[in-house]
Amino acid sequence: MTELQDVTLTVNGRRYTLAVEPRRLLVDVLRDDLGLVGTHIGCEHGVCGTCTVLVDGASIRSCTTLAVQADGRTVRTVEGLGDGAGLHPLQEEFWDKQGLQCGYCTPGMLMRALEILEQDPDPTPERVREGIASNLCRCTGYQYIVEAVMAAAPRMRLAAPATQPTTGAQA
């Protein structure tokens, strides 16, 4: 067994120092060591984007990133998206527009959508579609994901507070 290395990560605003094997993947550290199982593993080749998290604000594939590469950096995962019990506008719009079916790609897709909207708060649907082409979804055919991201954009521009939506028929 190789020598362990100390790694410091700030994940969703909380600082962690861990001793990890140099070969250990960031996704395994997030899931197994920190218990943040919202970041999922899909293809293990960096293709599908299921494992997407933001490192210093930029999306990366945590299944092909070593934890030691993220040393000293800030990581954001789906667990940091909502505000306590409330949902982030992106999460709410994914719910409202049915931008998910099995939910497995959803955390990665949400983090990628967050990055897109942080870079371009007022995107065209074409830009969103092109942007999420980094991430595979096997269920939805992407249409309602694009709709959800477009619906979240104005709410995020207005920094709308996250509220618990009521039930009922959709518009």
């Binding site: 919202g38 667990e79 999460q91 959803t106 939506p165 028929a169 959709q170």
Partner: peptide, 12 residues
Amino acid sequence: IRKVEDPKFLRG
């Protein structure tokens, strides 16, 4: 209606 399964998946 909004799907009743979704909130847990949206939160990871």
